[in-house]
Simulated assay, not measured.
Amino acid sequence: MLLEYLREARNRKGLTREQLAATIQVDVQSIKRLEVGIGNVPTLVATMIALDLHLAGVGHAASLPQQLRAARVRRKWSLPDLGKRAGLSPATIAAVEGGQGSVASALKMLRALAPDARPRQPSTRAFWALDPLTERDVRFTPPEFLERVYTAFGIPDLDPCGHAQSPVLAGRKITLADGGDGLRDDWSGDFAYVNPPFSGLLRWLRRAEDQVRCGNVRKVVALVPARLDAPYYHTTLRHHADIWILRGRLSFGTLSGKGNQAPFALMVVMFGVPEHEIDAFTRTVPGAWFAPRRERADHWPSTA
């Protein structure tokens, strides 16, 4: 049950086992073992946090060990009561509830306390005001914002998240309607502008990072939600990109033609962009840096 949810959550995030291991600072073997039910509870908790995986139907608490304790208390079971049902000693149960112990023990407790536990529905924060005429992930960059992008960075050579009704000017568009997939097809050109489906935010940012790193495009500018709680931003992205947090909200276009204001903060993530272009952009678009630019001295490729 939980093990399947872990694998599904990792795949949904677009993470390899190696990437997940690096995020929570363990070896890849620990992730492989965890996905078959072997390991310790601290690794399990760290993995669930990194994958934004939280179970519904257990108990109201921040972490799985706390949820298990809340579920036991709600049922008015003592440690020995749960021990009889789960085949565990009271000491083992107390260790798991305290955030220690083994994954195998936690799984036994979960089966006894909440056999119907399931992943909490993905947060709807990546979407807003569902447009009844289309998929909720289809949102177009405001033309006035695009003008500032063009002025600072030039006209994009590529829009890997293209759509027939998108106002983005680009020499080439990769569109699903034409059988393309920007997460699969190679990017090309000097400049790619990315306003991705927000439900796959981290996958698109990793794709952009990869396409600049391998030289398929020289620079990428991405307009995305400011989801700065994800470990990826802190462990990787802040060292490889310039991240400008926008002040205020933008009103995105929809297929129905109506404007749709984002109810969350937005940011512009820039890979491989020369400093003079970044300066030109930030002079006209109010905002603030995610991290001081002097901390990002290990940029690639060179923007000199």
Rank of each mutant, 00 (worst) to 15 (best):
S251K: 06
P142S: 10
R249I: 06
G154N: 10
A288V: 08
D242M: 05
L169A: 12
S123H: 07
P197A: 15
P274A: 09
P263I: 07
V168G: 08
R206H: 06
L169K: 15
Q100C: 01
I278P: 01
V212R: 01
V45E: 14
K76C: 08
S251E: 12
H239D: 15
V96W: 11
Q66R: 15
L2H: 04
A297W: 14
Y5W: 13
K108M: 04
R227P: 03
L255T: 04
R294I: 09
A114R: 06
S78F: 12
A91H: 13
W187H: 09
E97Q: 13
N11T: 03
A22W: 01
R238F: 02
K13Y: 00
I155D: 09
A230W: 03
N40H: 15
G171I: 08
H240L: 09
R85V: 02
S256M: 11
P167Y: 05
V269W: 01
I174M: 11
D27L: 02
R120P: 01
L113A: 03
A192G: 14
A91V: 15
A280G: 07
A126C: 10
L266I: 02
R238N: 05
L34D: 11
F145R: 02
L255F: 02
K258S: 10
S123A: 14
V36N: 09
S188Q: 15
G215I: 10
V45G: 12
V224T: 13
F140M: 05
A9K: 00
L130D: 11
R120N: 03
I93D: 07
I49C: 02
D185N: 10
S63H: 15
N216G: 02
S256F: 06
L201K: 05
R139G: 01
P196K: 13
P65E: 09
T141C: 15
A104M: 04
A177C: 03
Y233S: 06
F140T: 01
R136V: 08
P274S: 07
F153Y: 09
S256I: 07
A95F: 00
G39S: 13
F252E: 04
A241I: 10
P132V: 00
N11S: 05
V138H: 09
Q19K: 05
A288T: 14
G259T: 10
L146W: 10
A86M: 02
K108G: 00
L228C: 00
S78D: 11
R184I: 13
G87C: 10
V220A: 13
M48G: 06
G57C: 07
A114T: 08
W289C: 01
R12C: 04
S199H: 12
L88K: 02
T124R: 14
N40A: 15
Q19I: 02
L79Y: 12
F153E: 03
T141M: 15
G87N: 11
R184A: 13
R247P: 01
A104G: 11
A71D: 07
E295W: 12
R120K: 12
P225Q: 13
S30F: 04
P263Y: 06
T175F: 00
P225A: 06
I49F: 10
Q66A: 15
T92Y: 01
L20A: 05
E97H: 12
A46F: 05
N216V: 06
L44R: 06
Q121P: 01
R17T: 08
R7P: 00
A192Y: 13
D159K: 15
E135Y: 14
R125G: 04
